[in-house]
Computed example of a mutant assay.
Amino acid sequence: MDFKDVRQMINELKMIANITPGEAIAVPVKNDKTCINLHGTNYDYLFDLNRKGHRKPKCTYQLRDANAKSKILFRIDLIGRPHPNPAGDYAYADKTLDCPHVHLADFPVYGIAVALPLDSPEVHMNLSPSDINNLVKCLKVTFERLNVANRTDFKYNLEDDIL
Protein backbone atom coordinates (compact mmCIF):
# COMPACT_ATOMS: atom_id res chain seq x y z
CA MET A 1 0.00 0.00 0.00
CA ASP A 2 1.45 3.38 -0.95
CA PHE A 3 1.34 6.70 0.90
CA LYS A 4 -1.54 7.97 -1.28
CA ASP A 5 -3.71 5.00 -0.24
CA VAL A 6 -2.77 5.51 3.41
CA ARG A 7 -3.65 9.22 3.19
CA GLN A 8 -7.02 8.29 1.70
CA MET A 9 -7.64 5.87 4.57
CA ILE A 10 -6.76 8.47 7.20
CA ASN A 11 -8.95 11.13 5.61
CA GLU A 12 -11.96 9.17 4.40
CA LEU A 13 -15.36 9.58 6.07
CA LYS A 14 -15.84 7.14 8.95
CA MET A 15 -18.67 6.20 11.32
CA ILE A 16 -18.53 4.68 14.79
CA ALA A 17 -20.09 1.28 14.18
CA ASN A 18 -20.23 -0.72 17.42
CA ILE A 19 -21.75 1.82 19.82
CA THR A 20 -25.37 2.96 19.73
CA PRO A 21 -25.86 6.72 19.27
CA GLY A 22 -26.61 8.35 22.61
CA GLU A 23 -24.48 5.87 24.53
CA ALA A 24 -21.20 6.85 26.13
CA ILE A 25 -17.71 6.35 24.79
CA ALA A 26 -15.49 5.93 27.83
CA VAL A 27 -11.81 6.74 27.95
CA PRO A 28 -10.51 3.65 29.77
CA VAL A 29 -9.11 3.70 33.27
CA LYS A 30 -5.36 3.62 33.83
CA ASN A 31 -3.79 0.30 32.84
CA ASP A 32 -6.72 -0.61 30.60
CA LYS A 33 -7.59 -0.30 26.91
CA THR A 34 -10.58 -0.55 24.62
CA CYS A 35 -11.26 -0.64 20.89
CA ILE A 36 -13.97 1.01 18.80
CA ASN A 37 -14.99 -0.26 15.36
CA LEU A 38 -15.18 2.39 12.64
CA HIS A 39 -16.79 1.84 9.27
CA GLY A 40 -15.41 3.93 6.43
CA THR A 41 -16.52 4.66 2.92
CA ASN A 42 -14.07 2.10 1.51
CA TYR A 43 -12.43 0.45 4.52
CA ASP A 44 -13.10 -0.72 8.05
CA TYR A 45 -10.97 0.40 10.98
CA LEU A 46 -10.11 -0.26 14.58
CA PHE A 47 -9.67 2.74 16.87
CA ASP A 48 -7.70 1.95 20.03
CA LEU A 49 -7.89 3.88 23.27
CA ASN A 50 -4.90 2.62 25.24
CA ARG A 51 -3.91 3.60 28.77
CA LYS A 52 -1.79 0.51 29.52
CA GLY A 53 1.49 1.84 30.89
CA HIS A 54 4.05 -0.54 32.33
CA ARG A 55 5.96 1.81 34.60
CA LYS A 56 4.48 5.24 33.91
CA PRO A 57 1.05 6.49 32.89
CA LYS A 58 0.29 6.26 29.18
CA CYS A 59 -2.47 7.43 26.88
CA THR A 60 -2.50 6.69 23.17
CA TYR A 61 -5.28 6.88 20.60
CA GLN A 62 -4.64 5.10 17.31
CA LEU A 63 -6.33 4.18 14.06
CA ARG A 64 -5.59 0.79 12.48
CA ASP A 65 -6.73 -0.93 9.32
CA ALA A 66 -9.22 -3.65 10.38
CA ASN A 67 -8.01 -5.95 7.58
CA ALA A 68 -4.34 -5.56 8.50
CA LYS A 69 -4.59 -5.13 12.26
CA SER A 70 -0.89 -4.50 12.80
CA LYS A 71 -0.96 -1.58 10.33
CA ILE A 72 -1.16 1.67 12.32
CA LEU A 73 -2.40 4.57 10.18
CA PHE A 74 -2.50 7.34 12.79
CA ARG A 75 -1.44 7.57 16.44
CA ILE A 76 -1.47 10.36 18.96
CA ASP A 77 0.63 9.77 22.06
CA LEU A 78 -0.73 12.10 24.74
CA ILE A 79 1.09 10.67 27.74
CA GLY A 80 4.12 8.45 27.47
CA ARG A 81 7.80 8.17 26.72
CA PRO A 82 9.72 10.53 24.42
CA HIS A 83 10.10 9.33 20.83
CA PRO A 84 13.47 9.45 19.03
CA ASN A 85 13.04 10.19 15.32
CA PRO A 86 15.16 8.45 12.68
CA ALA A 87 17.91 10.24 10.78
CA GLY A 88 16.86 11.70 7.45
CA ASP A 89 15.99 14.79 5.48
CA TYR A 90 12.94 16.27 7.22
CA ALA A 91 12.25 18.91 9.87
CA TYR A 92 12.34 16.63 12.94
CA ALA A 93 15.13 14.24 11.92
CA ASP A 94 17.38 13.00 14.73
CA LYS A 95 15.26 14.83 17.31
CA THR A 96 13.57 13.29 20.32
CA LEU A 97 10.02 14.53 20.83
CA ASP A 98 8.28 14.47 24.18
CA CYS A 99 4.58 13.72 24.44
CA PRO A 100 2.25 14.79 23.13
CA HIS A 101 3.13 13.97 19.55
CA VAL A 102 1.49 12.41 16.48
CA HIS A 103 2.55 9.62 14.11
CA LEU A 104 1.15 9.55 10.56
CA ALA A 105 1.60 6.51 8.34
CA ASP A 106 1.46 8.77 5.27
CA PHE A 107 4.49 10.83 6.34
CA PRO A 108 6.74 10.82 3.24
CA VAL A 109 9.45 8.12 3.15
CA TYR A 110 9.47 7.36 6.91
CA GLY A 111 5.78 6.75 7.65
CA ILE A 112 4.73 5.93 11.20
CA ALA A 113 8.36 5.90 12.45
CA VAL A 114 8.36 9.71 12.68
CA ALA A 115 6.87 11.63 15.61
CA LEU A 116 5.51 15.08 14.85
CA PRO A 117 4.70 17.84 17.35
CA LEU A 118 1.05 18.89 17.57
CA ASP A 119 1.79 22.22 15.88
CA SER A 120 3.40 20.57 12.84
CA PRO A 121 1.56 21.49 9.60
CA GLU A 122 0.98 17.82 8.75
CA VAL A 123 -0.90 17.12 11.98
CA HIS A 124 -4.04 19.25 11.41
CA MET A 125 -5.28 19.13 15.01
CA ASN A 126 -6.47 22.06 17.06
CA LEU A 127 -5.22 21.13 20.53
CA SER A 128 -3.71 23.68 22.88
CA PRO A 129 -1.19 22.71 25.58
CA SER A 130 -3.95 23.07 28.20
CA ASP A 131 -6.17 20.63 26.25
CA ILE A 132 -3.68 17.77 26.70
CA ASN A 133 -4.83 17.14 30.27
CA ASN A 134 -8.40 16.67 29.05
CA LEU A 135 -8.43 13.18 27.52
CA VAL A 136 -12.06 13.50 26.44
CA LYS A 137 -11.35 16.73 24.53
CA CYS A 138 -8.31 15.06 22.93
CA LEU A 139 -10.48 12.11 21.88
CA LYS A 140 -13.09 14.39 20.31
CA VAL A 141 -10.43 16.36 18.42
CA THR A 142 -8.82 13.10 17.26
CA PHE A 143 -12.18 11.87 15.93
CA GLU A 144 -12.59 15.19 14.14
CA ARG A 145 -9.10 14.89 12.62
CA LEU A 146 -9.89 11.35 11.44
CA ASN A 147 -13.17 12.48 9.85
CA VAL A 148 -15.49 10.46 12.11
CA ALA A 149 -18.82 11.90 11.00
CA ASN A 150 -21.07 10.68 13.83
CA ARG A 151 -18.70 11.68 16.68
CA THR A 152 -21.24 14.16 18.10
CA ASP A 153 -23.91 11.44 18.48
CA PHE A 154 -22.27 10.11 21.64
CA LYS A 155 -21.60 11.07 25.23
CA TYR A 156 -18.01 10.91 26.44
CA ASN A 157 -16.80 9.81 29.87
CA LEU A 158 -13.47 9.70 31.63
CA GLU A 159 -13.45 6.91 34.15
CA ASP A 160 -10.61 8.24 36.31
CA ASP A 161 -8.11 11.07 36.60
CA ILE A 162 -5.34 11.58 34.05
CA LEU A 163 -2.46 10.40 36.24
Results as ranks from 00 to 15, higher is better:
Val6Leu: 12
Pro84Ala: 14
Lys56Leu: 06
Glu144Ala: 08
Asn133Val: 03
Pro86Phe: 15
Asp89Trp: 15
Asp106Leu: 07
Glu159Arg: 09
Asp44Cys: 04
Asp160Lys: 13
Ile72Asp: 04
Asp131Cys: 07
Met1Lys: 12
Ala105Tyr: 08
Gln62Glu: 07
Asn37Thr: 02
Val114Thr: 05
Ala115Lys: 06
Ile132Thr: 08
His54Thr: 04
Asn147Met: 05
Pro117His: 15
Gly22Trp: 01
Ser120Glu: 10
Asp106Gly: 13
Asp153Ser: 05
Gly53Cys: 13
Ile10Ala: 09
Ala17Val: 01
Asp131Trp: 07
Val29Arg: 13
Ile19Leu: 01
Glu12Gln: 10
Ala91Leu: 15
Leu104Asp: 08
His103Gly: 08
Tyr61Ser: 10
Lys95Leu: 10
Asn126Leu: 08
Met1Thr: 09
Phe143Glu: 03
Val6Ile: 12
Val123Gln: 13
Pro108Met: 14
Phe154Leu: 01
Asp89His: 14
Ala24Ser: 03
Thr34Asn: 05
Pro28Gly: 15
Ile19Gly: 01
His83Val: 05
Leu139Phe: 03
Leu46Ile: 02
Leu13Thr: 09
Pro84Ile: 10
Asn18Thr: 00
Pro121Gln: 14
Asn42Lys: 13
Ala17Glu: 05
Asp48Phe: 08
Thr142Tyr: 01
Ile76Met: 10
His101Glu: 09
Leu13Ala: 13
Glu144Phe: 02
Lys14Pro: 02
Arg75Val: 12
Ala68Trp: 10
Ile16Ser: 06
Arg55Tyr: 05
Asp89Phe: 13
Thr96Gly: 10
Tyr43Asn: 06
Asp131Thr: 01
Tyr110Lys: 15
Asp65Gln: 12
Leu139Trp: 02
Val29Asn: 14
Glu23Ala: 02
Asp106Phe: 11
Met1Trp: 09
Ala91Val: 06
Ile25Leu: 03
Leu139Gly: 03
Leu63Ser: 05
Ala17Trp: 02
Leu46His: 01
Glu23Ser: 04
Thr152Leu: 12
Ser120Asp: 12
Asn134Pro: 00
Val148Ile: 15
Asn37Gly: 01
Leu46Asp: 01
Glu122Ser: 12
Ala149Ser: 14
Gln8Ser: 10
Ile162Gln: 08
Thr152Phe: 11
Leu116Phe: 07
Asp98Gln: 12
Gln8Lys: 15
Pro82Glu: 10
Thr34Lys: 07
Gly40Tyr: 04
Lys52Glu: 13
Lys71Ala: 10
Met15Tyr: 10
Tyr43Phe: 12
Asn133Leu: 07
Arg81Ala: 08
Phe107Ile: 11
Pro84Ser: 13
Tyr156Arg: 05
Val114Gly: 03
Ser128Val: 12
Thr60Cys: 11
Thr20Ala: 00
Leu38Ser: 01
Thr96Trp: 11
Val141Gly: 09
Met15Val: 05
